[in-house]
Design a binder for these strands. Sequence first.
RNA 1: GCGCCUGUAGCUCAGUCGGAUAGAGCAACGGCCUUCUAAGCCGUAGGUCCCGGGUUCGAAUCCCUGCAGGCGCGCCA
Length: 564
Amino acid sequence: MNFKRNTAELLSALTGIDVPTLLPLIEVPPKRDMGDFAFPCFSLAKTLRKAPPVIAQDIAGRFPLQDGIARVEAVSGYVNVFLDAEAVARETLRSVASAGSRYGASDEGQGRVVCMDYSSINIAKPFHIGHLSSTVIGHSLYRIYGFLGYKPIGINHLGDWGTQFGKLIVAFQRWGDKDAIEAGGIKELLTIYVRFHDEAEKDDALNDEARAAFKRIEDGDPEALTLFQWFKDITLRDVGKIYDVLGIVFDSYAGESFYNDKMDRVVDELEKSGLLVLDQGAWVVNFPEKDHMPPCLVRKADGASLYITRDIAAALYRKEHYDFYKSLYIVAYQQNLHFKQLFRVVGMMGYDWAKDMEHVAFGMVSIEEGTLSTRSGRVLFLQDVFEKATEKALELIEEKSPDLENKREVAAQIGVGALVYGTLSASRIKDINFSWDRTLNFEGETGPYCQYTHARACSVLRKAETLPAEVDYAELSDDYAQALIKLIAAFPEAVQRACAENEPFVVTRAVTEIAQAYNKFYFEQRILDAPPSTRAARLALTDAARQTIANGLYLIGIAAPERM
RNA sequence: GCGCCUGUAGCUCAGUCGGAUAGAGCAACGGCCUUCUAAGCCGUAGGUCCCGGGUUCGAAUCCCUGCAGGCGCGCCA
């Protein structure tokens, strides 16, 4: 049963206001002793020509005490509704128990396809913390949408085209060592790439050579293509290790090179719709004055296409190939203008589904030394951060639970959990200033805290050995149990909000609050050595908390170890 | 110059699209392990919700002006 809806229905009968308009007006009071739901009567004052406290008093006096409603009070213009603790406990715990790992899930998506462009790494460039946000937000949204019945399509739009591949070929042929690259991976590729730049400073002819080498890739020269593919394989193999650690899989790796032969069509179409204008030798699309947007360049003076040309081609391809209901781009806010232009151009081309594309923007990551910059050495490789966090977790495990069997595995889950949590703990738009202190702090509102709480609940259940078949839910009327139950009951709504706003942090917060409430409950109330009836009820609550935390952690892409 | 975004405790952030006395965590200080995992719990202290106007029963929240910071603004992605 949905208590909020039920309250709205009863209120509707008393006020004559229909349920849909009533529902958003009902709020949760700031303090628990003010009840479970509150209905402010101020907005009714004008139409009813009565003072809000009088109206509240009237409604409260006529409120029927049924369907789990214990009592109703009128306090300074509010109607405060108190739910029956036993009923709330029963309904909530039963629905968690029956849904299990699907608690919070729904079929509201009805199998509709949602494309998600995230992570989208560059070939031959190492994965650094700047790539983490897109990867982790995208992955979480992938799970959230899937959980709510959509069919997500995870797309890693690879940056696998451009003259840098010509440079890599030249560099490899001059100074490369196949075995060293096979062994060293991306870091080795980066080394020869950096060397190319150093040498090219002295000898500009190298740049011409690189351009020629890239031309060979474009022309389909077998040797060049083989090398090109090899660079990609090396990169994906390396980056794949990070995706494995994060538990990420993609449905498509179609990147820039994939769209290479699909761009002429875009230019043709733009031309036919009369949108293309020649300006200073280049072809551009101009926007109406009201858009306040500079024109966007679609084809360079030398005939070459650009980033946005590829993105238009990709948008068309995705619509035709997946027939998406929504198409999300999880990309930093630096590219706000780019996506505004992209969506507008696609709309101007006459595709009404342009409205279904959305830029899921997020803030920038900087480190203490300043903005990230590979060239000036201000980088933090994700691999290194993972390792350091895992090491810290391992130290703590050695200290706190030296008997744990799979220490390394759990340490990695905790270290990575800390990092992922850090990325998903605030709204997307906030900039992140990376700090080792914060990353390696596993106390308070952190990933390890939530994981710890989950493991703690698991430990209690393990010692109990069996879950009770019969539960007297009246045993869960104390404040600590009730606070926890209400947060568990609110979890499905949090998942829906996270989806509607493309904001994984909403789930992060919900999980954190449940963990906090469970820890308070755990500290204040004995579970295993309570009297049988109480013990049974508290075990059932422990299991519900355990399950909900596990589901929430899954949705934000964090592992939930049973021991730590 | 134009456009977008951000501004809440020393720091990192919430604040359920206008509601009741603005909440958490970190850091600081003080307590709690012979009892279910102390990666935990409790307490103390910490606020000009950037400034100023406006809208109304009521504003951290909505509107306007300003200030500060970030990002972007044609041949990169």
